[in-house]
Simulated assay, not measured.
Amino acid sequence: MSKLSDLRKSYEQGELDESVAADQPLSQFRQWLDQALAAEIPEPNAMTLATVNAQGRPSTRIVLIKGFDERGIVWFTNYDSRKGQELAGNPHAALQFHWVELERVVRIEGVVSQVDAAESDAYYHSRPLDSRLGAWASPQSQVIASRGVLVANAAKAALQHGLSPQRPPHWGGFRLLPQRWEFWQGRKSRLHDRISYRQDEAGHWLKERLAP
């Protein structure tokens, strides 16, 4: 068995130069996400969400992007979960996509807010029935005695709400408004490409190369 310290990989899938990277980070993100979807890599919509609690301690988890535009990056979850409570106390957060097969990483930092109720309702009602009932059944991030608690809660939710459950008031969307982006493309000899975008005081995006 190989030791972790012996593992090596040469990154040679692509390159990213500031002269060809889009002037707007959202355009660059759309291009890379479309390429990840076209490559049919596993779960190209999965992203790591990092939040910080009141004691300044960070935590991460995987969530799924469900939309994006000039207003920001959107995902849906339980507002009473650990991440929901931490975002309520500190709205600054970070997202990261890691598309291993393409040797690419996208990092996004910004401020998070809840999406409006109509947007949360629309997405909730687009979900499969078992997922809609699951939002009622799971007291996310709380300690439970066993999986049987979830099964019992799901059965209770099905009896109570039937085939047309309404969105739970504790469940809905978040939107991160980016303040900083970074696009990382693996390159040979660890001389990776890193293109950063940050906003100046006027709100214009500044594109810069970072040392790997």
Rank of each mutant, 00 (worst) to 15 (best):
111 V>E: 09
78 N>D: 15
94 A>P: 00
92 H>M: 12
118 A>S: 15
72 G>N: 06
82 R>T: 14
68 F>V: 00
109 E>F: 06
115 V>R: 09
119 E>P: 06
85 Q>W: 02
92 H>E: 05
105 V>G: 06
68 F>Q: 13
95 L>P: 10
97 F>D: 01
87 L>E: 11
71 R>G: 13
67 G>P: 03
111 V>M: 11
122 A>T: 12
76 F>D: 03
88 A>G: 13
83 K>W: 09
101 E>W: 04
108 I>G: 07
87 L>Y: 05
91 P>H: 01
109 E>L: 07
115 V>N: 02
120 S>C: 10
82 R>I: 03
66 K>F: 02
116 D>C: 10
112 V>N: 01
93 A>I: 00
86 E>G: 04
79 Y>P: 12
113 S>H: 04
82 R>H: 10
117 A>C: 08
70 E>M: 04
121 D>Q: 10
83 K>R: 08
96 Q>H: 14
118 A>K: 08
90 N>R: 10
71 R>E: 15
77 T>E: 15
63 V>R: 11
87 L>M: 14
97 F>P: 01
102 L>N: 11
98 H>I: 10
120 S>K: 03
66 K>P: 04
76 F>I: 08
118 A>N: 09
112 V>I: 11
101 E>N: 13
91 P>D: 02
68 F>L: 14
65 I>L: 14
71 R>P: 02
80 D>C: 03
93 A>N: 05
79 Y>I: 06
73 I>S: 05
94 A>W: 11
86 E>T: 05
101 E>Q: 15
89 G>V: 01
60 T>W: 03
102 L>S: 11
84 G>E: 07
82 R>A: 08
87 L>D: 07
81 S>A: 13
110 G>H: 10
112 V>M: 02
105 V>N: 13
101 E>T: 07
91 P>F: 01
68 F>A: 11
90 N>E: 12
109 E>W: 11
68 F>K: 07
105 V>Q: 14
116 D>P: 06
75 W>F: 15
96 Q>R: 10
105 V>S: 15
117 A>R: 08
115 V>M: 02
117 A>D: 13
107 R>D: 01
62 I>H: 08
